[in-house]
Design a protein around this nucleic acid. Structure first.
Lengths: 344, 344
DNA sequence: CACCGATTGTGAATCGTTTCATTGTTGAGC
DNA sequence: GCTCAACAATGAAACGATTCACAATCGGTG
């Protein structure tokens, strides 16, 4: 491995001072054309590459932002991540993507790492309540924007979607289709989005004048396909007259799992069991039975969050915190449509 | 924003020298228990957080690795990424995930950024041929492991899956099922994996004693759902006696797109058109028509690549380059099974 | 011809951490 | 009581880039 090339080597090669090399790099207009060419040539010949660590040690902050999500394998988050990346890279910032698997221990470890890196700011979907570390980190001056989660107060930026409304939309739709016993699948409820979707679901049930028990809450331990299958296994063992005729899943991965398990067991969707998912990921419409789902503006969520973060990072003093809330939209597909022919 | 706390502040508060603070941080056994406690207390009180830039400026290399993939929204890559992350985080390394969208310009920009960050090493699925920048970067001492692409020589580590074999498996299966005109969908062919899968497909056709024309090659401009839909639109306009009866897609996103478009146009799968995909992503089995696909050990691909990278980074001198090649496996599902009842 | 301002280039100080040669302290062993 | 080793702690140098006050050079002007 060749020894690393520094500005000093470039300066020696070009026969100028290190200050001049730095000027060529950062304010080329202050350097005469001949010198500039000589330095550029030296840079090319030696294969000099700037050392960001040194740069930012001096400058104070780095050119990276942290993006902390619950699950990178969930298409919802990859779409959000692309939105973040688009905006960040346009501003010359790199994104460090961190995956917590909904675990506070992993979240904590990543936050420590990001703060040590002196990232320009952090976009985070918290796995649980706002942790002490996150509060401290913010107090110490790292901008933080909450992603897919509304800030409690006005002292912080957040970008979210109205999850209560989303839950309401989904369950109202199922109620209108004639369902009277509906299962809610999702969890743990410590995740704010899930709790809000459930709250919306409850509101819809209440408004319809039905008893609370009309909503059967099944808590899962994650939001992936496997958890969806598991949840359904539980539901189908219920006594016929108490069993739900529809499921509302807190995200599409759960819904796809539910769909798989139901088909596997010979249930027809939606005749025997209707399904509504959440997120409207691309795969929802391509599923075995095209999935009804609550759509969120995923890409825009990421873009907006990154914009707010950059705004705050570039101008901490003049920055005014904003809480942006997008509206969800129900997309009805086959998995929840009443069939013309009578069921069974 | 409070001024950043440095070791100097901690030292002052604890009434020791900066060297001692550093020792508490890095070699606590060299410091007497009382001093250690005093320093630890000062760290906690002031909320001191190490500055990684400064650390690594001194140390020379950082605690991050770069992971450069073609498309983060593709579940294949997110699964690979999880494998990488598992191994990296166990070794105390953070992963910077970069998305090239199969564009060499984006790849180039990210490589520059990663080198400036002085990452410990880079895992990359190149968007095209090995770029000059990548070669230079390696020459200058950054370890690079090729991911999902076999190294041409023995002078570099790589982890890949036998794509030729995968293509062969897929097309052989279709030929055995009686198909005589098969479309290959994927591209651009500058991506090595795609070219290899096509090569395997050609080999299968040849072995079956069929003319080359039995394989209809449709080149796409990407490997997503939209490109799959587009490709099919082209195929279905072909004259009946020349049109294919089966499609082999270079990945599952294309296959899902093909499936969507075919259903949309009233074609039955597999009766009117059989489909085989590639990657066997989780959504393949949950598709409208469960998708036959060539499975790759995605998670292990990532894990192994990260292991090789760490091995090389930790011991450049004693490191022996290896080219690991995994075997693909064909998973047959409904989208390509011969139906018992006669078609049409 | 002395002086001025503009234009280029210089080099030392700086960022925060780690490292290492050195100093200061203790206590054991003779 | 002296020496020596072991242990603690110190503080200055170093990492590499940037910045900034300053010096050098030049053409033009009064």
């Amino acid at each position: 491995m060749a020894a690393a090339i520094s500005v000093k080597d470039v300066a020696a090669r070009a026969g100028v001072s290190v200050g001049t090399v730095s000027n060529v790099l950062n304010r080329p207009d202050r350097v005469s054309p001949e010198t500039r060419d000589r330095v550029s040539a030296a840079i090319a010949e030696l294969g000099f590459v700037r050392n960001e660590s040194a740069r930012h040690l001096r400058a104070g902050s780095s050119r990276t932002v942290g993006l902390v999500v619950l699950d990178v394998a969930n298409p919802f988050f990859t779409d959000v991540a692309r939105g973040v990346e688009d905006t960040a890279s346009a501003a010359g910032l790199a994104v460090i993507l961190c995956n917590t698997d909904e675990k506070t221990t992993k979240e904590d470890a990543y936050l420590e790492l990001l703060e040590e890196q002196r990232v320009r700011g952090i976009l985070i979907t918290p796995a649980d309540a706002i942790s002490d570390r996150l509060t401290e980190l913010r107090r110490r001056g790292t901008p933080v924007v909450l992603l897919d989660r509304k800030a409690a107060g006005r002292d912080q930026c957040s970008v979210s979607v109205d999850d209560r409304k989303g839950g309401d939309l989904a369950v109202s739709h199922l109620l209108e289709s004639g369902h009277r016993r509906i299962a809610f699948v999702g969890g743990p409820l410590s995740i704010a989005q899930v709790a809000d979707r459930l709250r919306g679901a409850r509101a819809a049930v209440k408004r319809a004048g039905l008893p609370e028990a009309a909503l059967i809450v099944t808590s899962t331990l994650g939001h992936n396909v496997a958890a969806g299958r598991l949840a359904v296994q539980e539901l189908v063992t219920m006594a016929k007259r108490k069993a739900p005729t529809a499921v509302f899943c807190a995200n599409d991965l759960l819904a796809l799992g539910a769909l798989q398990e139901l088909s596997h067991r010979g249930f027809r969707v939606p005749a025997d069991m209707a399904i509504v998912g959440y997120d409207d990921i691309d795969f929802a419409s391509a599923a075995m039975v095209p999935l009804s789902s609550v759509r969120q503006p995923r890409h825009q969520l990421g873009r907006t969050a990154a914009e707010l973060l950059i705004e705050e990072a570039d101008n901490a003093a003049g920055h005014k915190h904003r809480q942006v809330v997008f509206e969800p939209e129900l997309i009805v597909r086959e998995s929840s449509t009443r069939l013309r022919r009578a069921p069974r």
